[in-house]
Amino acid sequence: MCTMIAHQVQIQGRGKSGLEWFDVREANVSYDHPYDLPLEHALNIDFVNEALGPGARVAVELSVDAARQLVRTIEAVLAQADQRGVLEDLPVVAAPARGPSVA
């Protein structure tokens, strides 16, 4: 059933939808029904840009185990980069107006 467990975080980055890249402004993280993964519930991440409409979306649907592994892996990679002194914690400049075709 729809759990309505969803959080949104404002982020800066780029995402690729089809052949086009677009500015990602928000990440929507939910534990709810996936669309394609054959599970009742999944950890869903939608990288979106709300200003560009619902079609500006890069979606992933993960099992709980996969989601936990991903979190650990991201943390490990960032820690390694930090250890080597190569982390670039700089603001991202927005791309010129462009985006995937949205309705």
Binding site: M4, N28, V48, P54, G55, R57
Partner: peptide, 18 residues
């Protein structure tokens, strides 16, 4: 909530808590 594929629009509403 906007128009597009039912999945994209549904995902937007899901993120907004229904």
């Amino acid at each position: 909530d906007g128009h597009g594929s039912p999945e994209d629009v549904g995902a937007k509403v899901r993120a907004a808590g229904g």
